[in-house]
Design a protein around this nucleic acid. Structure first.
Lengths: 192, 192
DNA sequence: CCTACCGATCGGTAGG
DNA sequence: CCTACCGATCGGTAGG
């Protein structure tokens, strides 16, 4: 279980890592932000790598929870896709620091952690692939390379972490709506 | 002008940086790959930052060249978009190492280099925005937030550097075609 | 949570 | 292109 202090350390680390990257955030930087000495951090966390792991896996598990919910609750593929995108964007925009780290720094996870992370990511992607498959089965979506389609979709969703700000002009819901309509219909006007 | 040795250093660095990231590629690693001592590198390049700069700016200038060509040669917005995407993917897939570094490590450019890079990137994005604008003017594309649309498009294109391999089953042209049709028409079947 | 400290590694320079 | 080396910084530990 995570103590209050652990949570505070992880949160502060996420903010610093977003700003400067994982390697360019030293334990001394993190300690300074918390107004303690670097060595004191080790009473709460065992290593720098542990921090990255905590951030990436927290976000990963929230993503997985949300895709399961969507696939459980809704029946229609278009609605499922709409809700999956909305949940995804909501998570990215509510956890701006951690989600940024999740998207951009997961490659720096070490050995076993990295493998475990990739496995979780694959589970999430499979959740999206199911939706695309449903859409095809329903005759609603074009037949496409599902894996290719899902990864293209997710890359455009994840790009949101690069620019989203709570002070910006678009709400999470608006962003999700725009992305959904783009993903469903593309740029082209429907032929009349 | 770049000497043969400089080119070799940059190429080798791009390959190592793709594999391990910029911070995790030391000048000693690079020197070892070239079978010389780290200090010898400094006879050819002035600093580690200089290497990253060379890679990012080489790719940036090729992108800009290609978007200008596309906007010059073609007239129809759909064709322009198709060719812009094809050129983009061709570049990513022909320069796999440097393009990967361009996409993933540009944030580690320092001060002035970073600003200059962002300016170049903005020029490129404007080139794509022009195409989307053309498409709207021609009544071919939906009216959209152009900047938002272009960044969404580019994020899905750039994701290709994460997985493309020359030994893979898809050619650059096939990848470009799939992405183009997705970007133009989305997942949904056209209404009859 | 701190003081004091370690070994390792880094980018880079001097001088040849 | 190499030998020899520098100062800085890193993640982390010992011991209290």
């Amino acid at each position: 279980m995570a103590s209050q202090r652990q949570i505070q350390i992880i949160d502060t680390a996420a903010s610093l890592i977003k700003k400067n990257g994982f390697e360019n955030t030293s334990m001394r930087d993190l300690a300074a932000a918390l107004e303690i000495e670097a060595s004191s951090l080790y009473n709460h966390i065992s290593s720098k790598d542990e921090i990255l792991k905590a951030i990436c896996f927290e976000i990963a598990s929230e993503f997985i929870k949300s895709i399961y919910e969507v696939n459980d609750i809704y029946f229609d593929a278009e609605q499922k896709l709409r809700m999956a995108i909305e949940s995804h964007i909501l998570l990215l925009t509510q956890q701006t620091d951690k989600a940024y780290v999740f998207v951009n720094e997961w490659k720096k996870l070490k050995n076993g952690d990295l493998k475990e992370f990739i496995a979780l990511r694959d589970v999430y992607q499979k959740g999206f692939e199911t939706i695309v498959q449903n859409g095809e089965d329903e005759g609603l979506f074009n037949e496409v390379d599902q894996k290719f389609a899902v990864l293209t979709i997710l890359s455009s969703l994840n790009w949101v972490v690069e620019w989203y700000s709570p002070e910006g002009s678009m709400s999470a819901k608006e962003i999700a709506d725009k992305l959904t309509s783009f993903i469903l219909s593309g740029l082209k006007k429907e032929k009349l």
